[in-house]
């Protein structure tokens, strides 16, 4: 998966866990929590969905890497390499 694909994957997960939010205007670099209403339980949901959908385990000490779409893409790129996109679940 490319970084662009990973951004789509994360936005797809967020659409599931925060269905009332408008996601089309999200920037890549700004922290997600500054753009939409996400709390710590929501970030745990993102971690869980990555585990369920892609078998990717994000250790607790790396949760900070999920702060923005850009940091997600950078951090997850190695782990998501070779995996098929699974969006719209």
């Amino acid at each position: 998966m490319t970084k662009e694909d990973i951004v789509l994957v994360i936005k797809d997960i967020i659409a599931t866990i925060a269905p009332d939010e408008e996601l089309s205007g999200l920037t890549l670099s700004d922290p997600l929590r500054e753009q939409i209403e996400l709390d710590s339980m929501d970030f745990l949901d993102i971690v869980m969905e990555l585990r369920k959908r892609y078998g990717v385990v994000v250790p607790e000490e790396d949760y900070g890497q999920l702060a923005s779409l850009e940091s997600c893409a950078n951090y997850l790129e190695p782990a998501m390499a070779g995996k098929e996109m699974n969006i719209g679940v």
Binding site: I17, A18, P19, D20, E21, E37, M41
Partner: peptide
């Protein structure tokens, strides 16, 4: 309730 609250 919004949809997020319902889900949670």
């Amino acid at each position: 309730q919004n949809r997020k609250a319902l889900r949670r």
